[in-house]
Design a protein around this nucleic acid. Structure first.
Lengths: 212, 212
DNA sequence: GCAAAAGTGTTTACGTTACACCCATGG
DNA sequence: CCATGGGTGTAACGTAAACACTTTTGC
């Protein structure tokens, strides 16, 4: 049962893409999600951002609310309600974690306290689902990117290989990508064309309207 | 900004189907959503259910969390966080509202206080979206139903007419429906076959896995 | 010239849509 | 017998899936 006199807390599942999808955990010996109580006069989103500010250099980070748990549904007894978020940041915007925090692949994350594992699973499911019908994958990439980089993000999250031609056709016909004209030379092979999002500042729906 | 010392509240958008989609509002003169603070030792879902118990006879009601707002995002200033839910009940499980509560069609609902309209919109969007890929529509129907009744629910929520043959083919091939063998005689025309859900106690996904 | 990744079309299968008539019953 | 809603099939279309080779560069 929740103790509603305890002030609400937020917990954040921060993902980045570094040779695969990684999640940030804190705590050193007893790993857990970044979390903490909301302060007076602080909005929920601001609190969630504050939980990960030591890990993320820039402040314009993608943040989305996941679900709100009470003690009963989380499996922890007591201790108020927890408003959970997930956040995405490209590798070049995250700082090197101190010795109190680390990036883990989802597969080899350590055991987490009651409820935290469920929050991570929930975030992973949401991310996977949104990959299919939004431009959310671009939150892991810099403004300019190659189609191969984009495909790698899709493959890392969905955990399945994608057909190069079908992938490119689908994305290019979706009208969200714009060729910048630039190219990236990268090793002894043909350089790749660079693209950017037509509307970089929003995560747009690919198919049709989807709920908040 | 939210005052996190105020205890959290829940607000509920309760829908039913009565010649179209209806939403329950309370308050008599100044209509608003059923809402109120969480009590000590009460779970969030229990609190949300309590908000609508005077309107719904049975306790097994479909209830799903929508979103959690703070004062800043709701547009109201101050007054803590609000965990919002939406709920669905078939007409035969809802009581006749007292003079302090009424069912409104979405189109002709009165002006609502700050934030409440946004919550209703959010609930409507979620309901419409889930209609497409879950069996949520059945929350408006009794255990046994005809395909025409089911189609009417879909048409009321999506607000567009559906092709009878395509609708029936799609639903029947989805493997969620079972013919009961019974029929319903209803007027001077051919009687309709009755169906039930194969798994009546869960809202199942129609296509593939979708996040919580 | 060769290794390595970028880039490009066509065919096939499948699911979705559009559409019109007969059936069973009550009055 | 007729009015009323219940029930049924097929053809056209568009989308998604499978699949292999040429191009451009660095060394």
């Amino acid at each position: 049962m929740s103790d509603t006199n305890t002030r609400p807390a937020t917990a954040v599942v921060l993902f980045t893409m570094d040779r695969g999808l990684k999640v940030l955990l804190v705590g050193g010996s007893r790993w857990h999600l970044p979390c903490g109580p909301v302060e007076d006069g602080e909005s929920l989103a601001a609190c969630a951002k504050r939980m990960v500010t030591n890990a993320v250099r820039h402040s314009e980070i993608y943040l989305e609310q996941l679900y709100t748990f009470d003690g009963a549904t989380l499996g922890t007894q007591g201790t108020g309600i927890v408003v959970t978020y997930y956040a995405l940041a490209p590798l070049d915007k995250v700082g090197i974690p101190d010795r109190d925090s680390r990036w883990f692949a989802l597969a080899d994350a350590p055991a987490l306290p009651d409820g935290h594992q469920r929050i991570v699973d929930c975030a992973g499911d949401r991310l996977t689902a949104k990959l299919a019908y939004t431009t959310i994958a671009h939150q892991f990439l810099p403004d300019q990117f190659t189609l191969a980089e984009l495909q790698a993000v899709y493959e890392a999250i969905s955990q399945q290989p994608l057909d190069k031609r079908n992938f490119r056709r689908r994305l290019q016909s979706s009208d969200h990508l714009v060729e910048t004209g630039g190219i990236r030379r990268d090793g002894r092979h043909r350089p790749a064309r660079l693209y950017r999002l037509r509307q970089p500042d929003q995560v747009a729906a690919l198919r049709q309207g989807n709920p908040k």
